[in-house]
Design a protein around this nucleic acid. Sequence first.
DNA 1: ATGCGTTTGTGAACGTGTGCACAAAGATGG
DNA 2: CCATCTTTGTGCACACGTTCACAAACGCAT
Lengths: 283, 283
Amino acid sequence: MRRTPVGRQTRARGIPEATVARLPLYLRALTALSERSVPTVSSEELAAAAGVNSAKLRKDFSYLGSYGTRGVGYDVEYLVYQISRELGLTQDWPVVIVGIGNLGHALANYGGFASRGFRVAALLDADPAVVGSSAAGLPVRHMDELESIVESQQVSIGVITTPPGAAQQVCDRLVEAGVTSILNFAPTVLTVPDGVDVRKVDLSIELQILAFHEQRKAGEEPEDEREEEPAPSRAANPVRAAAAKLRRAAGGSAKPEAKPEKTDKAQKSAAGNDHERPAVMPA
Amino acid sequence: MRRTPVGRQTRARGIPEATVARLPLYLRALTALSERSVPTVSSEELAAAAGVNSAKLRKDFSYLGSYGTRGVGYDVEYLVYQISRELGLTQDWPVVIVGIGNLGHALANYGGFASRGFRVAALLDADPAVVGSSAAGLPVRHMDELESIVESQQVSIGVITTPPGAAQQVCDRLVEAGVTSILNFAPTVLTVPDGVDVRKVDLSIELQILAFHEQRKAGEEPEDEREEEPAPSRAANPVRAAAAKLRRAAGGSAKPEAKPEKTDKAQKSAAGNDHERPAVMPA
DNA sequence: ATGCGTTTGTGAACGTGTGCACAAAGATGG
DNA sequence: CCATCTTTGTGCACACGTTCACAAACGCAT
């Protein structure tokens, strides 16, 4: 586990996670500027290009000891180099992709892959029907070669694009073989030992989050947002009652209503739902 | 725009964003339990299945006025329904996918798509070579049909899987047609008017974040981290000097034509005016 | 040198998210 | 009906992230 040394700061090497997640964004914007031979850029301009706010950008850069020039801005080439180095992109990162279905195929062909130090070391699949075919000019090899490939090519990053059922198994094998960073596209929660990083990309989750906001928009649209608008959840009273019954029924005992208190509770909860503060009523 | 009504709470229906992002996770775990006919589940068990901590899960549920039963846990079916409703998954969400390259193809075939209320209304592409072919049993139609499809099918969610150069343009057209939620797979910062949500999925960024941590692992491996190691920000004095030199060199000898003043002005107007990207390749 | 305009770097305030720990609420058994 | 056991719901404290706002630093002109 990670104990915070003294509460002073976990820093030392500590660039905040949120900042790390934005560095690639800055890098992309800077690379574009570099290709246009723009020599320097201000925090304001770069922030606009990266879609963030300039104060945040300056603070981010301050973490990596970045040095701009006051009154001028940042040297584009210098920053490109610094960020690349900080992100570890100055070295080569061989990557294995496991599961060459539609998505694996797409990733293998993805241009941005190779462009920044990432090199596809191998494409792997367990299906004999796929093994032997090729994608993006690379042969698809059998899972059994995983261990030898990881070892011989010093692969430390693995990408999982298998069906969800196989993901944990593949993950275990990757970890066992020595992979310590995993990018998971399968809609599964992966369990890994300490020291192994997992990041997940989940299309379904992203869509559901969009749907949530979309629904909210649709609900608020009719009138200006006062605060007492009829939220869709309001219509849930009957549903809740039904659910309470369901719960009781599922509980095993088929007795209709042993205690009036239950009904009371259901009503209270339903009524209190709108601002959900009713829970604790100190006697 | 957004004034906090009374300062009492921005809430009303305010579920924290972090919570919203976890709801799909809970939903997935609950669905799995439901399929196994598990009637109830404790916060501890469900949290483990979803890969979060139980206190967090309970707090999350408390926001949606969820009701478990103390001493028992949560009714699985009830929660599945409640979360689905909260996320807006009880209704149908037609989706258009624009850009049927490798990735668009993969998404069209993605099973998790249709499973939860999301329905592919149309596949669109601008390339005549692709239009007319089919993916996942659906015909690929031409971009020109976008507007009519969005309107006739009431599409409010669009997925962009085009090359980066076309993304903003496609985005603008989607928004213009009436789409208010966009899932962007192109490595570009999209600019949209207020009221339109954009979420991005960026493989390249994810990999770079992994590389960062991987590099750190490799760097820290030799010995445990004391805290007095030479932090880059502190040790940066020499670096700063070097950078200043570099900067000067770049301004002077390496790029003879570069006049600080002039370039500064040019770049200011350029960056200030346009948001159009001159077809830079993905980084 | 000195002063002026510009832009960085950061202290401080604020907002959001997380995790602990415990009282309250319900189930269950005697 | 009471005691006990389990598990939820949440107050509180803390960590993390964001934004503001401003002094310090720098280039440049005079």
